[in-house]
Design a protein around this nucleic acid. Structure first.
Lengths: 132, 132
DNA sequence: GTGCCTGCAAAGACTTTGCAGCACT
DNA sequence: AGTGCTGCAAAGTCTTTGCAGGCAC
């Protein structure tokens, strides 16, 4: 089996890259459906799975929306604002040493970790302060 | 609105506590369905949601399996073995200072974080070594 | 007795699969 | 030319909801 490039697959990848964020499968579909060359839902799902399995995109569990897809392959964290429900990337703060620590204390072999923060984002925090 | 205790709600909680682990909604249902006093799926889902919202049990997002429920309310991490697919608790290693670090670097207010490790558990690592 | 809770079944949201035809290499 | 990919629709999985009756307080 060899990998083929197709219009649809390319467009799906572009949409995720352009979003600079985290899209659900449905959001990708909704975006592409409106284009001149339409697309089928199945194609979106099949390709997201394909791109994820081939490590071309990343897949994260969102607390409320299920899986979201992300073109940022660097190890990074995620933050979810409990007030506005937006999701943010937290770059450059991956604690690689945490893997080593857990390996030492827990045993086994750690390949990676993903962490998800919850709280109030800078925007919402500012708005709350301004109210008082 | 006041909280009532019912046979079903109590049993659901017991099952999760007895499991000392991480059960999906369906696993809870499958366990209870076989008892003398059967139970409806809707009751399981409604009560898991209820127990979680009242902070009586914990709900974790497994990167691959969706939500799993946990009676351990202490802040702790989770580990998933890529070989045997078991899920482990990692106790006593919660990095509270990570919240402070992110607050300082990213801004906003961090309430908590959850982290999920992936790798090979001590058991499977040992087995692999023994093979060679 | 009142109001929350339960079971059932139907509906809902999301994702996967079978199939015939199409497109990329 | 051949194999993998697409679109459609149907099916599958998981979870929620409406409703009538039941149970806890």
């Amino acid at each position: 089996m060899s990998i083929k490039t197709t219009k649809q697959r390319d467009r799906i990848l572009e949409v995720i890259r352009d979003a600079h964020g985290h899209l659900t499968a449905d959001e990708v579909y909704q975006t592409l459906k409106q284009e001149d060359t339409s697309i089928g839902v199945a194609t979106v799902y099949r390709n997201l799975k394909f791109l994820y399995e081939n490590k071309i995109i990343n897949r994260i569990q969102h607390p409320d929306f299920g899986y979201v897809y992300d073109a940022n392959l660097d190890r990074h964290y995620h933050f979810h604002c409990d007030v506005c429900n937006r999701m943010y990337d937290i770059d450059d703060l991956y604690q690689a040493n945490l893997n080593t620590l857990i390996e030492k204390e827990f045993g086994g072999k750690i390949h990676s970790h993903m962490t998800f923060f919850k709280g109030i984002c800078p925007d919402c925090l500012k708005k709350e302060k301004d109210k008082h």
